[in-house]
Simulated assay, not measured.
Amino acid sequence: MLKATRTAALAAAAFCAVAGLAGGVQAKDIEIGAEFPLSGSNAIYGDVFKSGTELAVAHINADHMLKAPLKILYEDSQALPQPAVVAMTKLVEVNKVPYVLSAFTGVSKAISTLGQRSQTVVVNGGGVGPDLAKLGPYFWNVIPLANLEVRAMVPYLAKHDMKKVALIYVDDPLGQAILDELKANLPKAGGKLVAEMSVPTSAQSFSGVAAQVRASGADAVYIASYGAQQIQIAKQLRDNGVKVQLASYSGFSTPDALKLPEANGLLYTTQAVNYKADDAVTKRFLADYEKAHDGKKPSAYVVNYYNAVLLFGILGHKLEEAGKPITGANLLAERKATKSFDLVGGKVSFQENGTLLAPIQVNKIVDGAGQPQETVDIH
């Protein structure tokens, strides 16, 4: 009798342990990764990106969109390929996340191979190198790439009698991609690339570059850099007597770049986001962001990373409803099976290569803020 009682007790204890374990798994957070620059000269981007991702997490969890709370595991990429690969290895092999947010062209290219090999979805909302559309089915872009930005800016410059363009570009995949696009597109608009100046990623002195710009006879200077470097380029061009129009891409839309006095009047492109869209997703995003940031309008980067996280929530919800695990392979299959998504700005669709196609907006910096000048629908 005693033996039977002991056996029953052990069985009950085992059942409780298993039940407790199952309950623990059920209650465990659903985790995704994010590789953002959280330190160094590009940390300002990490702060901007996180303001979008954290708002999306708050909304997903408040709505109980998933069966467990969503959590983002942040890793510091420093906007450099080598630290990014180390961080990606940790996220994939240790944390085993199915979905990783990425930024910067060089970083995204560096981690994409591991994403393909491990069937981990990597979503870019900040890098704009055109070759990011060619990194395989597990690499997605929720941002228009630089080729589309250049194709919008070049006709705008030409239309306003700025056909002689000088390019200052950082010596990395982004800079090279913009150089290639300007060479291809300026002649089509009747323009000409009159000077091209490559600068190392670590360079911070540009008086010599300014002298080359002045000698080139350019009507406009296109700056293809990012972070602290792009600010120094703009500042030192003006300090060294360059008075012609300055232009850039979406990388110039960070708060510190917009507020730079020497950047007043600079033209830059971003994706066009319809903040006046009447859908519930856009209204909620805009209201809650402005409430948390003293009425400040969100940048396109904030929208991109909010949408990237919301996209995971939508896909994960569909998989859970179908009784399927949230894996990279299942997320990819579900994305391909879904024609459109309700994200900030309205309904959006992915191209076959995993990149969202969106209109491009030309903006002008006026008193520390970007003012839309023209929207171009590029296909």
Rank of each mutant, 00 (worst) to 15 (best):
residue 3 K to C: 00
residue 10 L to A: 12
residue 10 L to Q: 02
residue 11 A to G: 11
residue 12 A to M: 12
residue 23 G to F: 13
residue 23 G to V: 09
residue 23 G to H: 06
residue 24 G to T: 07
residue 26 Q to N: 07
residue 28 K to I: 12
residue 28 K to Q: 15
residue 29 D to G: 01
residue 37 P to E: 11
residue 37 P to H: 05
residue 40 G to A: 04
residue 40 G to C: 07
residue 41 S to N: 11
residue 52 G to P: 12
residue 52 G to Y: 09
residue 55 L to H: 00
residue 56 A to W: 10
residue 57 V to I: 13
residue 61 N to T: 08
residue 64 H to C: 10
residue 66 L to I: 07
residue 67 K to P: 07
residue 69 P to L: 03
residue 69 P to V: 08
residue 70 L to N: 05
residue 71 K to S: 14
residue 73 L to N: 12
residue 81 P to I: 08
residue 88 M to D: 04
residue 90 K to L: 09
residue 92 V to M: 08
residue 98 P to A: 03
residue 104 F to H: 10
residue 107 V to F: 11
residue 110 A to H: 10
residue 115 G to T: 06
residue 116 Q to C: 04
residue 116 Q to F: 12
residue 117 R to L: 11
residue 120 T to W: 09
residue 120 T to E: 08
residue 124 N to M: 09
residue 125 G to E: 03
residue 137 P to M: 05
residue 138 Y to A: 04
residue 140 W to L: 13
residue 144 P to K: 02
residue 146 A to T: 04
residue 149 E to M: 08
residue 150 V to Y: 08
residue 151 R to K: 15
residue 156 Y to C: 03
residue 159 K to G: 01
residue 162 M to V: 07
residue 166 A to C: 04
residue 167 L to I: 13
residue 167 L to T: 04
residue 169 Y to P: 07
residue 172 D to H: 12
residue 174 L to A: 06
residue 174 L to D: 01
residue 176 Q to C: 01
residue 177 A to V: 02
residue 177 A to E: 06
residue 184 A to E: 14
residue 186 L to F: 12
residue 194 V to A: 05
residue 196 E to H: 11
residue 207 S to Q: 14
residue 207 S to I: 05
residue 209 V to I: 13
residue 212 Q to F: 13
residue 215 A to T: 02
residue 222 Y to E: 08
residue 222 Y to P: 01
residue 222 Y to M: 09
residue 225 S to I: 03
residue 230 Q to C: 10
residue 239 D to Y: 06
residue 242 V to M: 07
residue 243 K to A: 14
residue 251 G to D: 08
residue 258 L to P: 00
residue 258 L to I: 10
residue 260 L to D: 09
residue 262 E to S: 08
residue 263 A to H: 07
residue 273 V to D: 10
residue 274 N to F: 04
residue 277 A to W: 06
residue 282 T to R: 08
residue 283 K to D: 14
residue 286 L to K: 05
residue 287 A to E: 15
residue 289 Y to S: 04
residue 292 A to P: 02
residue 299 S to V: 05
residue 305 Y to S: 10
residue 308 A to F: 05
residue 312 F to L: 15
residue 313 G to Q: 00
residue 320 E to P: 12
residue 322 A to T: 05
residue 327 T to Q: 01
residue 330 N to Q: 06
residue 333 A to L: 02
residue 333 A to F: 00
residue 338 T to P: 01
residue 340 S to P: 09
residue 340 S to N: 13
residue 352 E to F: 07
residue 354 G to D: 04
residue 355 T to E: 14
residue 357 L to T: 15
residue 358 A to V: 03
residue 361 Q to N: 10
residue 361 Q to D: 09
residue 368 G to T: 07
residue 369 A to F: 08
residue 372 P to T: 09
residue 372 P to Y: 03
residue 377 D to F: 14
residue 378 I to T: 12
residue 378 I to F: 07
residue 378 I to D: 05
